[in-house]
Design a protein around this nucleic acid. Structure first.
Lengths: 256, 256
DNA sequence: CGCCGCGTTGACAAGACTCAAATCTAGTGG
DNA sequence: CCACTAGATTTGAGTCTTGTCAACGCGGCG
């Protein structure tokens, strides 16, 4: 789950530490143009190559809470890298049932589900003011034929999504309500930490209802679990403001 | 979910119907060498291109019930196309909990989870005598840089896995026991039909325990659900021999 | 023939859901 | 700036589904 593994490891010889720093800095500068952190930074592309990424992508701003990035059934054109803000994805069942399949935050890639049918199979909805970087998939495929490291990275991103989904299947299939919520909070904490934010204090962007949908629980059950955690001194929670007080305790709950 | 969509649709002009048949036949003949049905047939590769697929892959036979194709933690080298038989994949939780994440049958691709970390994140276990076609991933990537249609197809396969997993998340998160089992039986039925087998009469390859693990239920609950279906005339079941008597009735149950 | 794994069934308990009511919060309009 | 309202959250009480524990039956194999 190390975000910079490819960049910080063997790809740069140790002798050129200074140069690595400089190079790293310039990469960041270029990359911050389009903020394709997830897609660019860890790949180890040269600056020229990164510019080519930049050329095929374009920024889309101004998504407000509740806006759709795409809807189930929409024709598939592009993947989207979230540049700021966050989204949820949800699938809809014929009979009206719906389920949140994920909460995506800055730097994550969204839209991978649509490749197999050329149509989106879920909705993506902004949970706050957000910006995305659109990546036309045809161009991304063409470029990845030329740049093996980009190709590999694209495959890794898709594979990571598969592994993530399987983790949720495990959660939904074999955990009880409080275990699920603890796992959810720890996952959030970890992802926030990876973005340099506080791993213990944060504002939830989603409602109890949405958390419940994601975790396969009713909103009342989520609310009760929050209250229990607070009573047991594991967290402090007031509406959407959460502080994790006892990370080891939470980890014990999920059994790892 | 149409397996041959790419082959039967726009890729071949209608005027050359005869030629399509012939070409289709020759493709099948070549392909039956390595039985990469899922990976080759729908791609629309030329015969020469398909031979190159054949060159990088090799057959591995002799997996018996209970044999591991790979284990969680194994170093990732290859994807595997199931040539005959069937496998289950299962993830293991630190505290000993385990969950079946999928049952794979002939023609399906297995191992996609391992790309993101270079290590397998689940076990793959044969459920009966099976053969697989090993596809070294480095070579597959190299070849897919040369053959855009292969590249696209690989992406589609990965995307399909993501969509499949999201469907299971929906099932685990929002369906009750009998709905889950009905969905499972209908999915099995559909996949058998796609392979030219009977969609209504078949032998289960997995135990009640394994079905339960997959569906997030205890084996007793699965057994009871089977019994209820039989009492209601939806199916006939004796141990692992199943006959679906009322497909519409089962569809009604899952709400579509 | 007896053992053992798998499947079925029953009785009961625990966890999660449903329904309902009371607060609380954030956003709106005066 | 404040009152108001719609939506979100919390909490309680009772119900329902599923899990747990236990007994029993079936069928294959040594």
């Amino acid at each position: 789950m190390k975000t910079h593994s490819l960049l910080t490891s063997a790809h740069f010889p140790k002798v050129s530490d200074m140069q690595q720093s400089v190079s790293h800095f310039r990469l960041k500068a270029v990359c911050s143009n389009c903020k394709l952190r997830e897609l660019c930074l860890p790949v180890g592309l040269s600056i020229g190559e990164m510019r080519r990424m930049d050329d095929i992508s374009h920024l889309k701003r101004g998504y407000a809470r509740g806006d759709y990035l795409y809807r189930s059934g929409d024709r598939f054109q592009s993947l989207y890298a979230i540049r700021s803000g966050s989204f949820k994805t949800q699938v809809l069942h014929e009979d009206g049932r719906e389920q949140v399949t994920g909460f995506q935050m800055t730097g994550e890639i969204i839209g991978l589900d649509a490749i197999c049918t050329d149509h989106h199979t879920c909705d993506a909805v902004a949970m706050e003011s957000s910006e995305v970087c659109e990546l036309p998939f045809n161009k991304l495929e063409a470029l990845s034929r030329e740049l093996p490291s980009l190709q590999r990275h694209l495959h890794k991103i898709m594979s990571r999504e598969i592994v993530r989904d399987q983790g949720i299947m495990l959660l939904l299939g074999s955990m009880r309500a409080e275990e699920r919520l603890a796992a959810f909070l720890l996952n959030l904490s970890q992802r926030l930490a990876a973005r340099g934010l506080s791993p213990t204090q944060f504002q939830l962007r989603m409602s109890r209802q949405e958390i419940g949908s994601y975790l396969g629980l009713k909103l009342e059950t989520v609310s009760r679990a929050f209250s229990n955690f607070q009573d047991n001194g594991l967290i402090s929670v007031k509406a959407r403001a959460v502080e994790l007080l006892d990370l080891p305790g939470l980890r014990t709950l999920v059994g790892k």
